[in-house]
C-alpha cells in the first residue's frame, strides 16, 4: 500500500528560557549582528550616503546681445575693435570699427527652448588691413529650472589667431556648463545673475579682457564655448569684409547636484535593507540550528499542544 502526502502544515515551536541565561545573551548578540552588521557593510562598501547626483536638463539660454570683438589687423600690434558697450566704443577712438552683425536664435525641435544661436558678423576692412587674430566675447542669460532654479549671466569667449591673414572664421560649438561644486537640490541660485561685463562703467579697467576672464573663471558656475574645430579660411579678396560666423548650440547638460535629505535617506535605506535581508536569512538559520539542537539550554514548547503538567 503506497503512502502519499495528503496534507502538511508548519508547526510552531516556542523555546522558553529565563532572562539571565546564555540563550538571552545569544539572542542579544544575534540581534546586534543582524541589524548593525548590514549598516557597517553598506557603509564601509562606500556610497552609503550619496553626496552628489546628476540630472539632465536643457537650459533656457538667451543671447544677451552683448558683444565684444577685437581683431588684430596687422602683425605690429594694430587692431580694430567693437563692442555693444558705448563707453568702450568711445574710448577706442580710431580703433573702433563697426561691423555688420546679424543674430538669430532658433528653436529647432519646437520644444519652446532655444537650441542654436546663429551669429554672423562682417567686419569691413581698409585696403591695407588684414585680419590675423580674432577675439570674440558674447554674453548669455542662462537658466535652469529642474532642481534648483539657476539664473545666471555667462559668457562665451573665442580666440583664434593665425599667421596667415584670413577671410572667414567659422566657429561651431556647444555652450557647455562647467561646475566646480554641485548645485543645491532646490531653491534659487542667482548669485551669478550679474553682468559679466559692466557696460555702464566708463573706465577702461572694466573692459580689460584679463580682468573679465579671470573674474569669470573664479565663479563656481560658468559656461564655456567648446569649439574644437574653428575653421579659418584664408584668401580674402581686396575690399571684401572679414566674415565671422558662429553657430553656438545650447545642448542638454548633465548637471550635478547635492541630493536632499529624503533622497539621501532613500538610497541609504535601499542599500541597508538589501544587505539586511541576507543577514536576516543567515541568522535565522543559525538561530534555528542552535535552538533545535539544544546547543543552548531552552524549554521547547510546541504551540497548540496543551500543557500536560
Amino acid at each position: 500500500m503506497a503512502f502519499y502526502e495528503v496534507f502538511s502544515h508548519p508547526a510552531l515551536v516556542r523555546y522558553r528560557t529565563g532572562v539571565c541565561s546564555k540563550a538571552t545573551l545569544f539572542l542579544l548578540v544575534v540581534l546586534c549582528l543582524t541589524y548593525i552588521s548590514p549598516l557597517l557593510v553598506a557603509y564601509r562598501s562606500q556610497g552609503f550616503w550619496i553626496k552628489r547626483s546628476t540630472y539632465e536638463e536643457q537650459p533656457v539660454v538667451r543671447f544677451q546681445y552683448e558683444t565684444l570683438l577685437v581683431a588684430a589687423t596687422g602683425t605690429r600690434g594694430d587692431f580694430v575693435a567693437w563692442s555693444t558697450f558705448p563707453h568702450l566704443n568711445n574710448m577706442l577712438g580710431s580703433n573702433l570699427r563697426i561691423p555688420a552683425v546679424s543674430v538669430r536664435e532658433e528653436d529647432q525641435n519646437q520644444d519652446g527652448k532655444l537650441d542654436l544661436l546663429k551669429f554672423q558678423l562682417q567686419l569691413p576692412l581698409k585696403a591695407e588691413e588684414q585680419v590675423y587674430s580674432i577675439q570674440l566675447l558674447l554674453t548669455f542669460n542662462y537658466q535652469l529650472f529642474r532642481m534648483s532654479t539657476v539664473v545666471m549671466q555667462s559668457l562665451a569667449f573665442v580666440q583664434h589667431s593665425s599667421p596667415v591673414p584670413g577671410a572667414k572664421l567659422l566657429i561651431s560649438g556647444d555652450l557647455r556648463l562647467q561646475q566646480r561644486t554641485p548645485l543645491p537640490h532646490r531653491g534659487l541660485y542667482n548669485i551669478y545673475n550679474v553682468s559679466v561685463v559692466d557696460g555702464s562703467s566708463p573706465f577702461a579697467s572694466s573692459y580689460d579682457l584679463d580682468t573679465i576672464i579671470s573674474n569669470y573663471y573664479n565663479r563656481n558656475l560658468t559656461t564655456v564655448l567648446s569649439c574644437p574645430m574653428p575653421v579659418w579660411t584664408v584668401g580674402r579678396a581686396a575690399g571684401s569684409p572679414f566674415e565671422l560666423n558662429a553657430e553656438i548650440h545650447y545642448p542638454v547638460e548633465v548637471i550635478s547636484y547635492r541630493p536632499g535629505f529624503w533622497e539621501t535617506i532613500k538610497f541609504a535605506w535601499i542599500q541597508y535593507v538589501s544587505v539586511l535581508l541576507i543577514f536576516l536569512w543567515v541568522f535565522e538559520r543559525i538561530q534555528k540550528f542552535v535552538f533545535q539542537n539544544q546547543i543552548l539550554p531552552t524549554v521547547p514548547v510546541l504551540a497548540g499542544k496543551p500543557h500536560l503538567s
Binding site: G77, A81, L92, G93, P202, F203, D208
Partner: peptide, 18 residues
Amino acid sequence: GVMLLPASGLTAQCVDSP
C-alpha cells in the same frame, strides 16, 4: 570735461580712460 588717464583697455595699447 573728464580727467583722462591712459590705460590698457582691450589690448595693451593705451585708451583714454577717465
